[in-house]
Design a protein around this nucleic acid. Sequence first.
RNA 1: GCGCCCAUAGCUCAGCUGGAUAGAGCAACGGACUACGAAUCCGUAGGCCAGAGGUUCGAAUCCUCUUGGGCGCACCA
Length: 567
Amino acid sequence: MRLAARLSRKVHEVKETVTDVLLAALARAKQKGELKLDAQPAVLLETPREKSHGDLATTLALTLAKPESKAPRKIAEIIIANIRDEAGIIEKAEIAGPGFINFFFKQDRWKQTLFEIDAEGAAYGLKNVGKGKKVLVEFVSANPTGPLHVGHGRGAAVGDALANLLSSTGFVVTREFYINDAGRQIRLLALSVYSRYQQALGNAVPFPEDGYHGAYVEEIAQGFTKLHGDRYLRVPFDDCLDIFGDYGKEMMLADIRTDLDSFGVRFDVWFSEASLLKDGSVRRSLDELLESRNCYEQDGALWLRSTTFGDDKDRVVIKKDKSYTYLATDIAYHRNKLGRGFESLVNIWGADHHGYIPRVQAVIQAFGHGKDALHVVLVQLVAILRHGQPVPMSKRAGTFVTLRDVIQDVGSDAARFIFLTRRSDSHLDFDLDVAKEQSRENPVYYVQYAHARLASLMREAESRGIAVPGKDGVNIALLDLEEEQNIIKALAKYPEVIEDAALAYEPHRLTFYLQDLAGLLHNYYFKHRVITEDTARTGAKLFLMKQVKTVIQSALAILGVNAPEKM
RNA sequence: GCGCCCAUAGCUCAGCUGGAUAGAGCAACGGACUACGAAUCCGUAGGCCAGAGGUUCGAAUCCUCUUGGGCGCACCA
């Protein structure tokens, strides 16, 4: 029964199988008294960089050297002597270097990968590591006081790809946009629109010093005029703040939605900060924290006792003047998130907010959840380059590059891919000219071209009346070229890449994987012809190419990038 | 002053929970189109992993310090 279970394991679970084999070998050695094994060692397996080091290697003998007080190579010998490969996947195991044990698999084992991809299609490689766990991914969350800029674009690309990645690996994901529609910024937007409105109608009021200077404010004022005429001309600002604020906010939100839509990003929930104030949940949250003594009053203000949970100092949530700080609404917001049954909260934030993390983690803990229920992904700023020169950006001067500009300039695919070509917390130089270039220098085209090439190949085969064989009609043993082996191994690695990327919250790993896979494909494709006189071999190669196409396509889908059939 | 992040080829960056000879791309130089898409491929060159200690069988990776960058340290949002 157990043997059957092991045999039925998929190729990408070969690691687990070898782990079992090793654990069994250790148990046997212990039984025979060859090893003491006072503590169960962790069995770590990794894919060696160097091909001559086999398909999988373990450092088990090295880590056991000390507790066993034996030479590592001697321990390796003992382990190998006790290996019983019931699943029959190991061709040989050899000792190398200081005591590595290198496993070489039977060729057939790798080739099973191709049958798996063929059978599972887009679902190949998607392990259920999430097990239905509910995750909330909150991202972009821009103030509705201006258009989205490139920084938001990066956050959108990272957040959306991460959400795709998580839902592909068995998490139940909700995408949420937190609308910062309470407080000063909205008031400032209202005042800015109000001023432009008055000015447009000939009432020369001064424009607020710290107002929003962008041209979009004038457009909003124009729209407002169309709707309301001169009804609010010479009405004091304080008497019409809300109507200007609401109108401006709605217009900006509509704008933001449009941009995100053309970027291929959709949210499940648009959550209003103002609603937390309106429905009293801020008040209730704070009462609850007072009750649990995580809040206290001092010097006429209300404080969160965040130091209990590792913050540097306690934080004010209600100021002396009785108004709330930003943290107050954030407390209510995160309480709300937890109350909706999410077991894991992922927040995508600009890196400049990193100092805020301990505070919010304290909030999570004050509500009785583990610190790790919240995971913050930091996204660094983006510098836009044109002709290799940085484009100066200033929010005050209104000269920042908007996401819309970038999408129009280089396209959504290129923008998304490039945003994901770096770890999110590392600084990114986005060169608009490179992003438009159609060459190796531009990783998007490099990968998309690989897919288009394969699509073209399939068309070519079809036009010649050659069908891609099914699993019963293909002789996979004919895939004996070194380049073919390399490609197959890369395909076999895909499930691990997906899983690791999801668990580390690092979608960029997928872009690197894709570039590697595309590189292998281009290399192979250049050196060898797929369609030849040899029909059996042609069939096997086409079968392989089909699987490569599937994997490229599904990885690109996770990144939110198109896989074109033609370019 | 305190805290967080970072420092890897000329440039931009990978390097998975420490592992075997540190990898890509660009730029430079030299090659490959009568063949399924040359938006491609191959080769050459390029490194004291910022510096100094420490931990251990083994360090780019972990710890400490130094130097040099970025960011945060509000009863702002």
